[in-house]
Design a binder for these strands. Sequence first.
DNA 1: CTAGAAGCGTCCGTTTTCGGACACTGCATG
DNA 2: CATGCAGTGTCCGAAAACGGACGCTTCTAG
Lengths: 177, 177
Amino acid sequence: MAFAFLIVDDDPDVLKAAALALSGPLARVDVATSPDGIEALAAGRDAVLLDMNFALGARSGEAGLGVLAQLKSAEPELAIVLMTTFGGVSLAVEALKKGAEDFILKPWRNDALEIAMTKAAQATRARRAEAGLTLDEIERRAIARALLASGGNMTKAAAMLGLTRPALYRRLERHGL
Amino acid sequence: MAFAFLIVDDDPDVLKAAALALSGPLARVDVATSPDGIEALAAGRDAVLLDMNFALGARSGEAGLGVLAQLKSAEPELAIVLMTTFGGVSLAVEALKKGAEDFILKPWRNDALEIAMTKAAQATRARRAEAGLTLDEIERRAIARALLASGGNMTKAAAMLGLTRPALYRRLERHGL
DNA sequence: CTAGAAGCGTCCGTTTTCGGACACTGCATG
DNA sequence: CATGCAGTGTCCGAAAACGGACGCTTCTAG
């Protein structure tokens, strides 16, 4: 249950503050001042906190969005939380559309940062777990969910899953449900 | 793409402020000052913003957590964002464990609130879409994902899915992939 | 009480799927 | 060049899944 975070920002003070806020018995934190070779740095992490503006004075967030896209394409399950000082809603929306897990404005509240990163890490774990599932396990879960959603009504559950009722019975038995 | 929000707080000023922040061409907002009959009020919403403390002076957040549990059990797909003034990390963690989608501290930043609620609404939509999927469609997606993850290597993809290779071929053909 | 509707669990002849095996291709290594 | 490893696509007898139909139990309404 211990999470591994990576923080990327060109300002050492920001890195120090964020690392302090996130460090704890349940979290390992590493930092980087540049997004160079970020795929390798991010390997094995549960979440990445990424600054949007690296070039001094840059405010468009383009740099961060580029790194976001690059990292997401290398490892789609990994949650990436973006942070910026110059946060407009439109920029945030664009970031979320590109796959960012969350969006934090500097200066942040430590509570909020910790919550966001914890949620992000949990999302990563969940996606990784799902990605490794066997077809049988996926089917079992879907069936269990449908059965729950229909309140135990076999006919409705079968229809919901696109099965005939006998087929649902067979699968229930096969999965031991 | 227009979202419907419900805001529940006993303070009318808070309701007004939150409604103003969230209103827009893409969002319909309704408010309530009490969580009574919340299941009915929440029907058809994409996300609910819920205060944690209703009794005057109450700070434990117990009230909000109770309503959260009640609402979650009635409609598990619905995203619920909790808000409180007296936010400790432990309370936030507890809330998230009980199924809250996010956790906002009062006073909030309008940007952050809008982002949080938009993300929550998207999460609701995604879960609802998934809940209605047929077994065939679920299988098709899982296969497509595995094939992508293995870089097109049939043997690896089959192993990942817990299938024999011929079985994977049959399913590919059946799904037209 | 009775008719109808809705749901349940099972049967069985037909259809589909299963997976081990086989032959083939590409490709790196000695 | 030869060897071996990894991957691909297909075949076929055995095995499993398919789904329409049947008889049964509730439950609701007239």
